[in-house]
């Protein structure tokens, strides 16, 4: 999250894992947002997995996820974790190590 961290290789494939809780309004909205955000900033260079912690609690436990929504960046390393409100696009992009400017992340 810090600016002094090395920039991940933004041209490589992103593997993101989103943990949500059932059909709650927040869960649905988060999935919708993430799908839109990835489509805009990563185009086809990403794979997004969406885990419903109700239906797949074992996956939540495996990744040490306590609450939903939580977004994990599995690849590229290092792993990153963003919890809480994911509707703030800039916060999410920062958390994923993508520059806030869509143009900057897009170009690579």
């Amino acid at each position: 999250m810090s600016a002094d961290e090395p920039q991940p290789d933004a041209s490589g494939p992103y593997l993101l894992r989103l943990f949500v809780a059932g059909t709650s309004a927040r869960s649905l909205r988060t999935v919708e947002t993430l799908h839109g955000l990835c489509g805009t900033h990563l185009r086809d260079r990403y794979a997004l997995e969406v885990v419903d912690i109700y239906q797949q609690p074992d996956l939540a436990q495996r990744d040490g996820v306590l609450a939903a929504p939580t977004l994990l960046r599995i690849a590229p390393p290092p792993a990153r974790r963003i919890t809480g409100d994911l509707s703030d696009e800039e916060r999410v992009l920062r958390g994923l190590g993508l520059t806030a400017s869509p143009g900057g992340a897009d170009g690579r």
């Binding site: 894992r17 869960s27 999935v31 919708e32 799908h35 885990v51 419903d52 239906q55």
Partner: peptide, 18 residues
């Protein structure tokens, strides 16, 4: 876009649910 699905749908499409 699929925002939520249950396990049965994943079985029908023979895909991991996530």
């Amino acid at each position: 876009v699929v925002l939520y699905c249950n396990r049965r749908l994943a079985e029908m499409l023979a895909l991991p649910q996530e």
